[in-house]
């Protein structure tokens, strides 16, 4: 079995299973915990508050934009760039089609390159902030850096393989993505899924009181 066959075969299956089962287990594990009852008479609908919070917290509100602009802007650069290249890169579309049969129109190559540059710029700028802002220096831990590092690695190896010239580079990219997937469910990267519950629960608790902070 070649290295590529290994990373696109057994290792890919292992990573896929650990990732999906891990993420599901994590979410179910949280939601299976007791949901705190609250018998206070509501002023407004908790459900509406929860849904409002999900959207409200997509951007800073209450006059905080100028204070958090750096993080908001580079955060969006990274996330939007990542989603664009992940879901609309022609290689990724082809890969998804191979596995699921689903396919859609990919970005042209120049679009993919721009998305990648945007994602790289965002990720590097976020990582730099983590190292240079006294606040994030104080609060960051190993997990933060491993998560960022593995994401960076997956993107870098993806960029290396852009020439589509070698099986080796494709395999290295697969390997780094698999490492990221294996790490994901056990780390803070889980925020990609839990943010929606986190915002909802907060919005429901406060929406009931009349104001969603």
């Amino acid at each position: 079995m070649s290295f590529l066959e290994f990373t696109e075969g057994p290792l890919w299956y292992v990573a896929l299973v650990v990732f999906s089962v891990g993420v599901a287990w994590n979410i179910i594990g949280i939601l299976a915990m007791r949901v705190r009852g609250d018998s206070a008479v509501p002023r407004k609908s908790p459900v509406a508050g929860g849904i409002k919070a999900i959207f409200l917290h997509m951007a800073p509100h209450g006059g905080f934009f100028s204070r958090t602009a750096y993080h908001v802007i580079v955060g969006y650069l990274f996330h939007l760039g990542l989603f664009a290249l992940l879901l609309f890169g022609s290689f990724h579309v082809a890969f998804i089609k191979e596995w699921t049969g689903l396919s859609w129109t990919p970005l042209p190559r120049w679009g993919f390159i721009i998305a990648s540059e945007v994602a790289f710029a965002g990720l590097i700028l976020m990582w730099i902030r983590r190292w240079t802002d006294p606040i994030t220096r104080q609060i960051s831990d190993r997990d933060d850096h491993i998560g960022t590092g593995l994401t960076m690695l997956a993107m870098l190896t993806g960029c290396f393989a852009l020439g589509e010239a070698s099986d080796g580079l494709r395999a290295v990219h697969m390997l780094s993505v698999e490492l990221l997937m294996l790490y994901f469910p056990f780390s803070r990267l889980m925020h990609a899924f839990t943010f929606i519950f986190s915002r909802y629960f907060m919005g429901a608790a406060y929406g009931k009181r009349g104001y969603v902070p």
């Binding site: 990648s116 960029c159 290396f160 393989a161 020439g163 070698s166 580079l169």
Partner: peptide, 12 residues
């Protein structure tokens, strides 16, 4: 392989 990777990274 390495040269191809380097070229792609360098251009990106």
């Amino acid at each position: 392989t390495l040269a191809s990777a380097s070229l792609q990274a360098h251009n990106l």
